[in-house]
Nucleic acid binder design. Structure first.
Lengths: 234, 234
DNA sequence: ACAAAAGTGTTGAGAGTACACCCATGC
DNA sequence: GCATGGGTGTACTCTCAACACTTTTGT
């Protein structure tokens, strides 16, 4: 902090409010879904919004995000991938007062969800991430940003299995990538690339599929999720 | 915002303070430098710190960052590359009170700097980014993070010339990359890659160097700075 | 036998890398 | 002429991407 901070005096300084918003993604019915909650009060009453809440005075930012995840989606911390996204602080983004929000995005496997246990079903729901309903505040912009980041993440790292159960087939993993990237992928190249990267390992389980049974894989947590990419100047 | 936000009442809610810290990079004497300011008050009095200050109640986050840039480095908005880095909000990162800081990082060409005009020279200075003095608060962590991000940026995009004057030689540009990435690059490959990407354009100027004069280039602002990279799943 | 889905191999095109070689200027 | 630094070309290797092919199950 610089000079302003040094001459700080709590009594005159008007502070903004700080919230955490969490964009929670999952895959349901072969679609990328985002969790939204219906607002009960002014402003934007009755509109859908990204779940979020105020940061308590002695609470860390990731802790606040995990709290939202538990409250709204009913998932515990170990079962999710959570990453800070961006901080939105435009004056006027909230008509009540100055609110700065630290946005996070989370990936949850569908089998870890526990929606009903956590919230009133009518006020919470999963929506298509690509064609969401009208959103409160600047939440459309936040969602847009989160989708862009999710796509980047999938292209450059191997976080895709965070959207799948513990054990999965390679076809299921490929489907996740196809859904998120909205693009058909080549089966052979997908598999060979994945084998070379060494991030997945076959288990002894098999899944009946209607054709030849598919080997179930699991993620090797000792593997490096990051993948070397072609840089401009290596 | 969710339920907590809906039941918000300004009078009971204890709000954290919000600051903006700006990690300002430049290249001087063939070294990557970062701008630091000396703290005049408790806590960490006399220690060096990343310049920053409180966000005014009606001020946007980038505006606050630009304000810091002008106050501390004496550069105006058009002359810098500015990007939001990360938000650090650990409770206890500031012993005075809960302070959440939105960190930015900035790239400034050495010829745009105007240090003396802006600040008292004894309290502001450029330091080697790779071996800085002990820093106040969690600023060592913030600087580390900024360096990592800067390297990523240079590897994947073509922002390198933000650290150079308007017109520059390819050797100078290569030197910037070598300094930031701490790695020798091949002259021929660097040049051919740059030519193929089409982000720079020769001007009619030449620079005397002691050998054959070097052609001065400038950045094509209509060019796409982003460069295709080898993704995991294209 | 045939359909369906898993799983593997091959091949041409293009990018990355290392290195050698030519060009323009000052002394 | 020769040292100095700018600028270009080439040849080998590796990855990418498209596509054809084989294997294992159910009906």
């Amino acid at each position: 902090m610089g000079e302003t901070a040094a001459t700080y005096d709590a009594s005159h300084y008007e502070r903004p409010s700080v919230t955490v918003d969490v964009v929670i993604f999952t895959i349901l019915h072969r679609e990328l879904k985002v969790l939204l909650v219906k607002r009960k009060h002014w402003p934007f009453e009755g509109m859908w919004a990204i779940p979020g809440g105020f940061v308590e005075i002695h609470e860390g930012l990731p802790e606040a995000a995990y709290r939202e995840l538990e409250e709204e989606a009913g998932v515990s911390g170990e079962d999710v991938y959570l990453e800070q996204l961006y901080t939105f602080g435009d004056p006027g983004r909230d008509p009540r007062t100055r609110v700065i929000t630290v946005a996070y995005f989370a990936l949850v496997a569908a089998d870890r969800l526990n929606l009903r246990a956590a919230s009133d079903a009518a006020d919470v729901g999963w929506f298509s991430a690509y064609s969401p309903p009208p959103l409160a505040f600047d939440h459309a912009e936040i969602l847009e940003y989160a989708i862009t980041r999710l796509r980047y993440k999938l292209e450059y790292t191997a976080v895709g299995f965070q959207l799948l159960p513990e054990r999965f087939t390679l076809r299921q993993l490929q489907e996740v990538y196809e859904i998120v990237l909205s693009k058909k992928l080549d089966k052979g190249n997908f598999r060979s690339k994945l084998r070379k990267s060494g991030v997945v390992e076959p288990t002894d389980g098999y899944l009946e599929t209607g054709g030849r049974p598919a080997c179930l894989y699991h993620f090797r947590d000792d593997a490096v999720a990051e993948v070397k990419t072609r840089r401009l100047f290596p």
